[in-house]
């Protein structure tokens, strides 16, 4: 392999990992909701779209940096998630319906409403936050003069990635070390046993939906400096979150991280070596392969059988 070819490959993998970090954050939000609720939240991408519009408005009206708006949009999305769960999804859970998955269908409806409301308010124009660091990058030869190859690291991508890692670590700490976090995990594993231990399962569902929404909301704020925004963008990210959750094994946080990184790298490789437009195709190839060959998710390959 000649050195330009190696450069392209390494650069592609780096880009894929950075993208994968953000995908992981989206996937973790989805997997958290799935673990506790046992439903797929098909409004996940639309919730991210809402957070992106929040970041966009904060930037265009008040010139607040999108990275700062994480701290505003995430709580707002938490609240939105709580309200959706409490007033729309919980009542549907109580009803005996002809189709058992009616809550999933409800989330589809929520997603449609959100994207149409966005279209009414903001029109379907493409928006972005043209921050001045959007094209800045660090170069390997600046740090290591004698480097035989040249690699670059985009500044906004890297900052977004670091944010995503920090949020993931904070979430891990919350789930592993606090009683509330443990109660959420317990609810996901066995809700009746959790009830017997004094866990208010209904409350955990509300908290989980809020948390999942705020995670994907944070991801939205991290995406907007490097992406553009339009009302229908949600569907695409719902599908991405869905693929990650399948790849990672339903309801597994670590699986979502691994799944996100794999998907990011795979899409990046497809975009470089096959063509930009083929990335979504690559995504679905991986999705179908995962469903056929590793239905239990990536981690099931390493887990020993019980």
């Amino acid at each position: 392999m000649t050195s330009p070819q190696l450069e392209v490959l390494l650069q592609t993998i780096i880009a894929g990992l950075l993208l994968g970090g953000l995908y992981a954050l989206i996937g973790i939000g989805m997997t958290l909701i799935m673990g506790v609720m046992k439903i797929i939240n098909l409004a996940h991408g639309e919730l991210m779209m809402v957070a992106m519009y929040i970041a966009y408005v904060l930037y265009s009206s008040f010139h607040i940096d999108p990275y700062l708006s994480v701290f505003l949009a995430a709580p707002v999305l938490f609240l939105l998630g709580v309200l959706l769960q409490k007033y729309l999804i919980t009542p549907v859970l109580r009803v005996d319906a002809i189709i058992p998955e009616n809550q999933v269908i409800l989330t589809v409806g929520i997603g449609m409403v959100l994207s149409n409301v966005a279209a009414i308010i903001f029109s379907s124009d493409y928006r972005s936050t043209p921050v001045d660091y959007s094209t800045k990058a660090w170069y390997l030869t600046d740090i290591w003069k004698g480097s035989p190859i040249e690699l670059s690291l985009s500044m906004p991508w890297s900052v977004s990635f670091v944010f995503a890692v920090l949020i993931t670590v904070a979430l891990w700490f919350f789930l592993a070390k606090t009683d509330l976090g443990k109660s959420i995990r317990a609810t996901a594993q066995d809700k009746d046993a959790a009830t017997l231990m004094g866990v208010n399962v209904g409350f955990m569902r509300i908290v989980s939906f809020g948390l999942g929404s705020s995670l994907v909301g944070a991801a939205g704020c991290l995406f907007i400096p490097i992406y553009y925004l339009y009302p229908d963008l949600g569907g695409q990210f719902t599908l991405i979150a869905f693929v990650i959750t399948i790849l990672g094994g339903l309801g597994s946080t670590v699986g979502a991280i691994v799944g996100g990184l794999i998907l990011g790298v795979f899409e990046s490789l497809t975009a470089t070596y096959i063509g930009m437009g083929w990335a979504p195709v690559g995504r679905f190839v991986i999705f179908v392969l995962a469903l056929i060959f590793i239905p239990g998710g990536i981690l099931s390959l390493f887990k020993r059988r019980r």
């Binding site: 443990k182 995990r185 594993q189 066995d190 009746d192 046993a193 017997l196």
Partner: peptide, 11 residues
């Protein structure tokens, strides 16, 4: 203490 233990198996 429920039938079948009902532990949180991943904890």
């Amino acid at each position: 203490v429920p039938e079948g233990r009902r532990l949180f198996v991943d904890m």
